[in-house]
Design a protein around this nucleic acid. Structure first.
Lengths: 144, 144
DNA sequence: CTCCTAAGTTGGAAATTCCTACCTACAGTT
DNA sequence: AACTGTAGGTAGGAATTTCCAACTTAGGAG
């Protein structure tokens, strides 16, 4: 029930529930209001409210008032939320390649002008990261 | 209930359920047998069996016999499974930075010798990908 | 006054997950 | 032959989560 001490598990504790990443996708697309996020993801409203509250509590999103009368709020990403963009992009490209039938439904362009494809590289040497090029330096433990 | 046509949603349809990414983490760590994956993740055995079967059906894992009498199997990643490594690494580093209290529980080393930190760059220009440097070229539609 | 919008909340039904125990097949030991 | 142990599950019922539709709140528009 506890499992290995691990930052993947900790990350999924914040963003690993159903609808959470899809809601973040909408927010990254610029859709920042409750009703539209609910409609575009397909999440039911009660679950969406719970997820958004959790993301705000975890510091991934901020609730900003965009209208005073009546009070209305929108959800904007914090630094930690923006740091998820490459992960979402990676998931999207993995889905494009291995799951989605037909052409990619969504395509981004980078400021450099090219159609965006993300590549994960080692921060030090700049070489692409491949499964075989890694070795463990320290491993989180599994509680007894 | 349907939501936007989107490869993130499609990807999460395969790897988005609880325990799936943690099981893949164990497999990437080299833990490839049922009992150990169950123990190290904390997943219950029936759910784990369901998840592993789904990953095999989706072509993310392969079941390989490693012993004939009695028949015993282990789960090994396919190409599509290995392609998830940078995503897992990205999730781990996001967790290290924004969620985990204290030092990173797990640390990897790259073949170049450095402690591994992943950086997402544009495949064309090589520049890091930041949330502000993207623009939409095409957007998946939400069914009416 | 009535209707409309945005952002939720509520309550009960439906689906999923969790937990424990059990099963199968075989090996090794006594 | 009878026990004991191991790997990889399956079965059944309880506990938890999710889903859905309707309701609420707070104001604006006609």
């Amino acid at each position: 029930m506890v499992g290995r001490e691990c930052s993947i598990a900790n990350a999924l504790g914040v963003i690993g529930e159903r609808w959470t990443l899809l809601s973040l996708r909408e927010i990254m697309l610029g859709v920042r209001r409750f009703d539209q996020i609910a409609y575009n993801t397909g999440a039911s409203r009660d679950i969406l409210a719970t997820r958004l509250r959790k993301l705000v509590d975890a510091g991934v999103l901020e609730k900003q008032q965009y209208e005073a009368h009546p009070p209305r709020y929108e959800y904007v990403p914090t630094e930690s939320g923006r740091a998820l963009v490459p992960i979402l992009q990676g998931l999207m490209e993995w889905g494009d390649r291995y799951v989605t039938q037909g052409p990619p439904p969504t395509v981004w362009r980078h400021v450099c002008g090219a159609e965006l494809h993300v590549r994960a590289v080692c921060e030090d040497c700049g070489e692409p990261i491949r499964a075989d090029d890694l070795q463990l330096a320290r491993l989180g433990q599994v509680p007894a």
